[in-house]
Design a protein around this nucleic acid. Sequence first.
DNA 1: TGAAATGTTGGGGCG
DNA 2: ACGCCCCAACATTTC
Length: 489
Amino acid sequence: MSLPAEVPVTLLWVRNAMRVADNPALAQAAARGAVVPVFLHPESSIGPSAADGARGGASRVWLHQALLDFDAALRGLGSGLVVRRTDDPVGELGRIAAACGATAIYYDCRVEPDARVVESRVEQELGRRIEVRGWHANLLLTPGQILNGQGEPFRVFTPFWKAACRQLGVFRLAETPTRLRSPTGASGRPLPGLDIDALGLMPAHAWPGTLLSAWDMTAAGAERRWRGFASDTPGALGNYGEGRDIPGTDGTSKLSPYLHFGQVSPRQLWNDVLRAQGQTHAEVLPEGPRRFLAELGWREFAQQLLFHFPHTLTEPLNSKFSAFPWDSDPRLLRCWQRGQTGYPIVDAGMRQLWATGWMHNRVRMIVGSFLVKHLLLPWQDGERWFWDTLVDADAASNTLGWQWVAGCGADAAPYFRVFNPILQGLKFDPDGDYVRTWVPELASVPRAFIHAPWEYGLFRGVAYPEPIVDHATARARALAAFARIKAGD
DNA sequence: TGAAATGTTGGGGCG
DNA sequence: ACGCCCCAACATTTC
């Protein structure tokens, strides 16, 4: 009488791909045999965005919900998450692999510098004994896949994206497993782990409640959101070319946090868009869908830039900016953070961010320009605030965005481009709907004055601050400061 | 994925 | 009727 043959066990190291569909590491692990999904959280996870597994406050709230949701999905398939807390992920993975008899570790890759260090240590230290494989599950492109004629990474978006689109057709997605086997036999004992609640991701005060009521942080929420965005007719996707710039309307997909946590696959979105248009390549799509896919392209661009230039997480890509004479005024920074600058479109954005963990992209550019050009505060100050308050906080995208607006990054805004918060308001929020939603004390200010309420007369009972800087003065000061280090000097 | 300053043009008011 | 001026409206250049 022979013992039943034990199936090979794969440790699924879950990092940022929290979905069942189109998850290559999960699909390959399921096809190989039994699967033990593991999530490791650092002991101290509120740190710089470089640290592996570090998160800002809003991200931690989302992570908590995403973990609960993904764990439930995995348990439904037959093998739930093993959650551990550790500052030694390499050793911990080795111990878990030994305990469950795993002969392979499959995971989803990340591009943050510290995360890559951990991944390569896993390869080096555990890869000799067991199979270690990673997939860039949350990207359309593998970093390094798109290089220019000289074999260098692109530093300008348009040629990067043209080259990428030439390579990208319809994706073959990973299989969705219908069932996960748990280890059996001697190695089948359940592994000890923590409750997700024990990770302490939810802060005790009231703020996370406002985030929770603004979002459905589950994979099903992502799917609902995507269906609403993509399939309504005429619909936000079809009108994305113009609609995406109007912050007072629901014209964007709002999928960024789901994409960051891998609750939805960018390849799935890509395929859905192509299929709905009956096309196989992005170049031939109509304006709206094409622009939407180009926004996925900016994600890719950010990820490959951080991959190739890891120091840009904290340092400007253009080293001339290392010597930039940034100001440092905690009072001004605080006015900006709290939405008390006296410029309605800026304050609306900053308050939307605080209340919902998200800010419309057009407004991100406006508030970013305001911080670095009107206030002359370092882009890293803005980067840090966004890191802590955005539910979609992503080290690569955040770095790209802030260096872009400061003019020191790849394909950056030229130094002389200074957004005028009044004109931007008039142009993209002409009726003031967005401002009135997030700055309720301006609700009674007439349309004509909504973006310059000081001209209306704040004495008429409007409790709203005077502008903390004068636009014309601040613009001239920024031009003078930036002109000194502009490219070529 | 600007804005402001400067330059040019053409229509209309008016002597 | 004509020329002059004013100034939108648009184009170009500059920051």
